[in-house]
Amino acid sequence: MPAHISRDDVAHVAKLARLSVDDAELDTFTAQLGAILEHAEDVEALDLADVPPTSHPFDLVNVLRPDEPGATLTSDAALAGAPQAEDGRFRVPTILGEAP
């Protein structure tokens, strides 16, 4: 039985998902995700070429409201839960990998 997901794959998806995993976690997650994907083989093996995909229980349509101003959260309320805010904006550390 070939491995369904390699240790390198797990390290890659962790990076994509902005998660840091140590060596022991990599081993654990690789085994666990492998077992789940192995179970999913029953679905992988089905011939569904002629079956359309379903992404949602019913067909979604755009829902519009009248273009009129209404009550919204104030800037202060929206920023109240932020770890850091400044001048009405969310504050973050340096971006683009520049060291401060």
């Binding site: 998660l19 932020a82 770890p83 550390p93 971006i95 990998g97 520049e98 401060p100």
Partner: peptide, 23 residues
């Protein structure tokens, strides 16, 4: 991601902060 609500774990750059926060 540590920007708009909840936990933030401080780190020198935003990407490192997001990784540290989510981890």
């Amino acid at each position: 991601d540590g920007v708009r609500y909840g936990l933030r774990v401080d780190a020198p750059t935003t990407n490192e902060m997001m990784v540290a926060t989510r981890t």
